[in-house]
Write a protein that binds this DNA or RNA. Structure first.
Length: 257
DNA sequence: ATGTCGAGCAAAGCTCGA
């Protein structure tokens, strides 16, 4: 069972690229972020034609998440992260697929920091901690996949020097990510590639960052502890970032036995 | 500060968020 996460940066603007990748990579489940469209304009018919059932949670212009499942319909179990009824951002969706609970999450970017956007990021992280702990208590196999907007360590970026003031590298952001791992969640890519410090999932459009491989690892798949024994592979479809009209993110994935 | 995208608004370049 292959589960992927991909920040598409506009699902309608990238639809050709998304369909191309689905056909090549053939994930059983694909968690998408930054669909950037309201629900009425989500391209579910094109995805269905490509063989994927889908659930989606969007809003106009910003954010938006979805879960695709090959050859079946994802069974939605949660829409929105609990803990703040006033938070209307479309950033969290959960489904059951083949006995695995899969979440597609888009954690707030948090820039500029300090400020209200960074406060929102940390508050969202705190809500994620509470919910993630709840999921572990349920003892259901679970994968929390998405754009976490956190570079976990200095080994997960080409060079931290020009990002030191960025919300993605702040000690508070990193501590929040570490706290998830401390609950027992497994960072699948790092688990499978403990010594490879050139794995990235995001390359900014600015400043020639793709051609010089100036990337960051910010898209993560966190596995519940019971899935460790089923983890057989994990990786990043790096070449996707180099194509025409590419998203600034590349898909990351795991294969579970 | 730089400079690159998608999307919205509205009809061409601007603004916003990333």
């Amino acid at each position: 069972m292959k589960i992927a996460t991909f920040n598409v940066n506009g699902i309608n603007g990238r639809l050709v690229r998304l369909l191309e990748w689905l056909e090549e990579a053939r994930p059983d489940v694909a968690c998408l972020q930054e669909t950037k469209t309201q629900d009425a304009n989500f391209p579910h018919a094109a995805l269905k034609d490509a063989g994927y059932g889908a659930i989606w949670s969007g809003q106009k212009s910003y954010n938006g998440v979805a879960i695709l499942a090959r050859g079946r319909e994802p069974m939605e179990v949660r829409r929105g992260l609990p803990g703040d009824p006033d938070d209307l951002h479309a950033r969290y969706l959960e489904a059951m697929v083949d006995g695995v609970l899969v979440a597609s999450l888009y954690l707030p970017n948090g820039n500029p920091q300090p400020g209200p956007k960074f406060d929102y990021k940390l508050a969202w992280f705190a809500r994620l901690h509470a919910h993630a702990r709840h999921l572990l208590e349920q003892r259901v196999p679970a994968v929390l996949a998405g754009d976490y907007n956190v570079v976990p360590t200095d080994q997960d970026i080409y060079n931290p020097a020009s990002w030191l003031d960025d919300a993605l590298l702040q000690p508070e952001s990193r501590a929040a990510y570490r706290d998830l791992l401390a609950q027992g969640w497994i960072d699948a890519i790092r688990d499978r590639h403990p010594e490879d410090f050139t794995i990235y999932t995001f390359w900014d459009y600015l400043r020639n960052r793709w051609p010089r491989n100036a990337g960051l690892r910010i898209d993560h798949l966190l596995l519940s502890p019971d899935l460790r024994a089923r983890l057989v592979d994990a990786g990043v479809d790096r070449d996707v970032r180099g194509r025409e009209k590419a998203s600034d993110h590349a898909p990351a994935w795991v294969v579970l036995r």
